[in-house]
């Protein structure tokens, strides 16, 4: 079967999605990045190969904060930022979507879409309060499995008010509330409301949030967050079936679009999963810029260099994407 592969390598999760010629999602993998993006991608490729040995990849797209690195390793046809990828995926699922709320591991974004075009977007600027990592951390502190966080929050009867401006203050506020005897469910619901408040006043500041509103990213799994968003916005918030891998869906769709005009994919093949990838970084002393150069070796040969301003290193090697 001929398919397209989308890879989204974020701070917390690495997602791989396979779509077919019609854009239907065939398979979706959600793996933890655990600080080793290349290993995570290789592991994902191995899994896909094991389940579907008959797949022939017609195009590959990457996104996420490790999109460039991943693009070089696997040989990507399209390397796109997360905002575009999420917007493309959202419009694919709900063509008339007008607002996309996306909360991932380290960042949160809002994308405003009108008539099928992204007209405005924003990302969290200075603080990661309210993103997946913070929720993870709080769940761990209360020894609640993150999967149960949302259900417990839904049981709240009188949610407490928590200061959500800053992760550190939110945490001390939560501890204070817990020490004065508030039930956990009320605290968790209060936290969800605080994070939504913070999101809307920080990321969503000045944006016209119109329905249909799509909520995606790992945090969309949290039912407490969905409910808090619906209460704050006063409208229904839709969570797409593949909410946690929407970036990868978008990357696959972008690869498919790219391949309309390209003949042959740059994909190195599933063998990449077994390549020995050795990245190394060093400071170039060629001039006063002292650029931090990253060199990536695949099976012992230099596949690409980047990070230089002048092109001294990046010109030496041709990247797989070009």
């Amino acid at each position: 079967m001929e398919v397209y592969l989308g890879i989204d390598v974020g701070s917390v999760s690495t997602n791989l999605v396979i779509i077919d010629e019609e854009g239907k999602i065939g398979q979706a993998l959600y793996l933890r990045t655990q600080g080793r993006p290349i290993d995570a991608v290789q592991q994902g490729l191995r899994q896909i190969r094991a389940i579907n040995p008959g797949f022939s990849i017609k195009g590959v797209g990457t996104t996420g904060s490790a999109r460039h690195l991943t693009g070089v390793v696997v040989g990507a046809d399209s390397v796109k930022n997360e905002i575009t990828a999420h917007a493309v995926a959202a419009m694919h699922i709900i063509p008339d979507v007008q607002t996309v709320l996306e909360i991932g591991g380290q960042d949160s974004k809002i994308i405003i879409i009108r008539d099928g075009i992204v007209t405005d977007f924003a990302m969290n600027t200075v603080c990661a309060a309210g993103t997946g990592s913070f929720l993870d951390q709080q769940a761990a502190r209360l020894s609640i499995p993150i999967e149960n966080f949302g259900d417990i929050a839904l049981n709240a009867t009188a949610p407490v008010r928590i200061a959500g401006r800053c992760a550190v203050f939110a945490e001390s506020d939560m501890i204070h509330k817990q020490q004065t005897g508030h039930p956990i469910s009320d605290i968790l619901k209060g936290l969800c409301q605080a994070l939504v408040r913070n999101y809307l006043s920080n990321v969503g500041k000045g944006k016209q949030i119109k329905g249909p509103v799509l909520f995606q990213g790992g945090v969309a799994a949290n039912k407490g967050m969905k409910q808090a968003f619906e209460e704050a916005l006063g409208c229904e918030v839709v969570i797409p079936p593949h909410y946690s891998v929407m970036g990868a869906v978008g990357a696959a769709l972008l690869a498919k679009e790219e391949m309309q005009t390209k003949r042959k994919t740059a994909f190195r093949g599933f063998d990449v999963a077994d390549f020995v990838c050795t990245p190394r970084s060093f400071e170039c002393s060629g001039c006063s810029n002292l650029c931090e150069i990253i060199e990536l070796k695949l099976n012992g040969t230099v596949a690409a260099c980047w990070g230089d301003r002048c092109g001294k290193w990046s010109n030496k090697t041709t990247t797989a994407a070009s």
């Binding site: 009108r114 075009i117 990302m123």
Partner: peptide, 27 residues
């Protein structure tokens, strides 16, 4: 640098699609 690049790339994509599909009224 990564945060700036993501925003720039997304902004350029936004401008390109506006140019391609014509400017949208009431942004």
């Amino acid at each position: 640098e990564a945060g700036v690049m993501t925003r720039l790339e997304a902004f350029i994509d936004l401008l390109k699609s506006r140019k391609r599909f014509g400017k949208v009224k009431g942004l």
